[in-house]
Each structure stands twice: as structure tokens, then as C-alpha cells.
């Protein structure tokens, strides 16, 4: 289904070339795939495996460790409602209830139109602003059930499409370092100098 677009394939190759070991590009390429499709499909993982010379199992293993990579189709907007202690005490349950009612899906589900995916989340480090939620990882603080309903209405009407890019988008402004200016990483196979933080000691004196 989702092979890299021609443009992204060029970018992917360039990303691979930035590292002394192609394998190091797995995470950046997973981001790229998620940016293109909103989520990461099996085909995308196979393609990444080919590009960096590892097995698809290794790509899957690496990717699935990270919470923010999604391996199932996902809506254009991902609504994460925090349910951990502070938020729970401040009414996260009602937020979730309102969202489920408004969207017609349970936590974990995606609306039929593919617009919004609703997830329960653990603490988002905004406990002082509880209860809080995130839309595509953008915060909304001290949210009320009505606020949730309004938010959903705005997402549906497109009123927020400028502020919140589709799920998976990494950045709206892309930095580009021309290859002649890229410093590049030192190849660990070539660089034999000891790590800087280990003080060099007299032979036998270290323990």
C-alpha cells in the first residue's frame, strides 16, 4: 500500500547516507513513513528494512517500542486524553465520556470518516493544568466536557486545520543542510579513540 513517494524515497536515501551505519536511519525513516501516511504499514517497514539492510522483524521490533509510532490506520487527528492521577481527580473521566459520546467511538477507536482517533493516555506532564489532553501532541489545558465538544466541532469544521497539521507531520518547516556543510557522524568502526568521558589512566591503575 504505502511505498515511499518518489520524493520521500530520495529523502530517505539521503537520510541513510548521513549515518556511518545505515541501520541508524531506522527511526528517522519510520518518522518519514508515518509522516507520509499518518501511520506505519507493513509495506513501509519492509521498504525501510531494504533501505537500511536489516530484516523487517528488526524494523518492527525497533518501531513498536515507541509509543508515538502507530502501526494501525489512524485518524487525521489523534486525541489523547490524559487519565493519570491529577487529571483523573480533576475530571478526566467526564472528558473521555464526552469525547466518546460526541465521536461515537470508544477509546482506542477511529471515527468512520477517518478524521479522529481517540486514545486514553498516561500522564502528559501537565498535571498542574489538569485535566488536559493533546490533539496530535498539541496541548489543551484545563479542558471541560463542553470544551471537548467544541474542540471536536472545530476539528470537524476545519477551523483548526492551520494550527494542527495531520497526524505524523514532523515539522512544517524543514531544515536542510547541504551535504558540503554537514559534519556527519564519526564512523564508530573507524574511530578508535576512547570516549571522551572516560579519563585515561595509567595502565593498571584503574579499577
Amino acid at each position: 500500500m504505502s511505498r515511499f513517494s518518489a520524493e520521500n524515497l530520495t529523502l530517505a536515501r539521503e537520510i541513510v547516507s548521513r549515518y556511518p551505519r545505515p541501520k541508524s536511519a531506522v527511526i528517522p525513516l519510520l518518522h518519514l513513513a508515518q509522516e507520509q501516511e499518518g501511520w506505519i504499514s507493513e509495506e513501509a517497514m519492509r521498504e525501510i528494512a531494504e533501505l537500511v539492510g536489516v530484516t523487517p522483524a528488526e524494523v518492527r521490533g525497533t518501531g513498536t517500542f515507541y509509543e508515538m509510532f502507530h502501526f494501525e490506520p489512524i485518524g487525521r487527528y489523534l486525541l489523547n486524553i490524559c487519565g493519570t492521577m491529577s487529571c483523573a481527580l480533576m475530571g478526566a473521566g467526564e472528558l473521555m465520556h464526552a469525547a466518546e459520546e460526541e465521536l461515537g467511538v470508544r477509546a482506542g477507536g477511529t471515527t468512520d470518516d477517518g478524521l479522529i482517533t481517540l486514545h486514553g493516555a498516561e500522564c502528559q506532564a501537565a498535571c498542574t493544568e489538569a485535566p488536559c489532553l493533546q490533539v496530535n501532541y498539541r496541548y489543551r489545558f484545563r479542558v471541560t466536557p463542553d470544551g471537548v465538544r467544541q474542540l471536536i466541532a472545530d476539528l470537524r469544521s476545519g477551523a483548526l486545520s492551520d494550527e494542527i497539521p495531520p497526524h505524523g507531520t514532523l515539522a512544517t518547516v524543514r531544515q536542510h543542510i547541504p551535504s558540503d556543510r554537514a559534519v556527519g557522524a564519526v564512523d564508530p568502526d573507524v574511530d578508535t579513540a576512547p570516549p571522551a568521558w572516560i579519563p585515561v589512566t595509567v595502565e593498571g591503575a584503574s579499577s
Binding site: E42, A57, E58, R60, G61, T62, T64
Partner: peptide, 26 residues
């Protein structure tokens, strides 16, 4: 991975859900 060089099984997912598995259909 290390001995056979056939890294066709790997830890998948994280935390309490971590499991050994293959890539689907591989």
C-alpha cells in the same frame, strides 16, 4: 541475530506487552 545472522525474530512492542515474534508472513 548474533550467531546465526538471521534476525527474523525480535522483541516486538514494549513494557508488559513485550513479546518475541516474527514479522508477519516472514
Amino acid at each position: 541475530d548474533e550467531v546465526a545472522g538471521d534476525a527474523l525474530i525480535h522483541f516486538i512492542d514494549r513494557g508488559n506487552a513485550t513479546q518475541v515474534n516474527t514479522f508477519p508472513d516472514e
